[in-house]
Amino acid sequence: MLTIGQWRVDERSGDIARGAERARLDARTLRVLLCLAEHAGEIVSSESLLNAAWGDVAVSQDSVYQAVASLRRLLGDDPKSPSYIETVPRLGYRLIAAVQREAASQPAADSSRMPSAPAPRPSNRSRGIAVLGAVLLLGAAVIFWLLHSRSGKIGATPAHASDTAPARSLAVVPLLDLTEGMKDEEFADGITEELIDKISKIPNLQVTPPTSSFYFKDKNVQVAEIAKSLRVSYVLDGSLRKSGDWIRVDVRLIRANSGFVVWSETYDQPKSDLLTIQDDIARKVAESLRLSLPNSASP
């Protein structure tokens, strides 16, 4: 068990906790965090994090950006004024929070030497009462399950819940700012709003308003949960990056009831008039979605 800043990290399960807050890291993100913790206070390159988390799997450094962004959201870290993970431009990342490893608890020295007293054997009557109680409890559990499973009140998952959403319904969640230093959040939010505006003009498509979509900004919520909360069949998410004089926006359309990506695209634009870029990218995405979304009654 590790303590990183105010968070306790279970290295085996990936669970992290801070007071009443609880979250679970996926395997890759956990490896990135553990690699940073192993080299706390040191600069760790993106290549080192790639090797630690993905090994021989061929992925780009975007995967590291996504993992670090996810960690920051979960830890409640501000990339502009970090208390956990610091971005070192062109070099990598550094964990600046204090790291402590909790020692495994040891049994008391004298207790291991003392012979344990034999447990008293239960009487036949006690055993009979225990067996009868177990049978009654099991029977009650079976009856409860049968009654509620038939009424549909038990076993509903977020994925199944989205089946009741309108077939042509969509939510655009705020784009992740993955630029160096993450200083383009306002621009990423602007693209998100333009996307909502342009996509909402597609005929017969229901699109959630910005106020609903931006509720999930900086929250680590699964697509199925977002779709369930907003009652939509599709979720559009993406990210913003910059390289020199170019801006890159990646977007993907996810089908909520399966979690599959049904469409994705990358848009590269020269950095010029930012408002024009927002409008142009949103228009292109809306046109692609117009052709990609089903026209049938079911998603």
Rank of each mutant, 00 (worst) to 15 (best):
L30G: 06
V131E: 03
Q66K: 12
D245A: 15
V57D: 10
D197H: 11
S60C: 00
R121H: 09
E180M: 11
L291M: 14
P89M: 00
L71R: 03
F216W: 06
G181W: 07
S298L: 07
L253K: 13
D197L: 05
F187M: 06
F260A: 15
G133W: 03
N204M: 11
T164N: 12
L25I: 01
R241C: 06
P299L: 00
A224Y: 07
G190C: 03
S288Q: 15
A282K: 05
S70V: 07
R28K: 04
I277P: 00
L170H: 12
S105G: 12
P174N: 08
P166G: 04
V221M: 04
L91K: 12
G155C: 12
S123M: 08
D77Q: 05
R125Y: 12
L178H: 09
R255N: 10
S63H: 08
T29M: 01
L136H: 11
S70C: 08
R73V: 15
A161F: 00
L147E: 07
F187R: 01
Q106W: 09
Q100L: 09
W145T: 07
W145E: 03
T164P: 00
I199A: 11
G244V: 14
V221A: 12
K284V: 08
T164Y: 02
D184S: 12
G155H: 06
A119L: 08
L132D: 02
F214V: 01
A256Y: 08
K242F: 13
W263V: 13
E102V: 12
K242P: 07
K80P: 01
V221G: 10
G259R: 09
M1S: 10
S200W: 04
Y215S: 01
G259K: 01
D62S: 03
K183L: 13
H39G: 14
A23G: 12
G238L: 13
L137E: 08
E193H: 13
S162I: 02
P107R: 09
D197C: 01
S169I: 04
V232Y: 00
G19L: 09
D78S: 07
M1F: 00
V64Q: 09
Y93A: 01
G133V: 02
A108S: 13
D279Y: 02
E265L: 06
A167W: 02
G19P: 14
I4Q: 00
D15H: 11
L137F: 05
R22D: 09
D62W: 04
M114N: 06
T208D: 07
P209F: 00
S296C: 09
T157E: 05
A58I: 01
P107E: 14
T164W: 01
A69I: 01
Q61F: 01
Y93I: 00
S169A: 06
I254A: 06
L50C: 10
V99Q: 13
P118G: 04
A58H: 10
K284G: 09
M114G: 05
A53F: 03
L30M: 03
A297D: 14
P158F: 00
A227I: 07
R121A: 14
R72Q: 04
A167T: 04
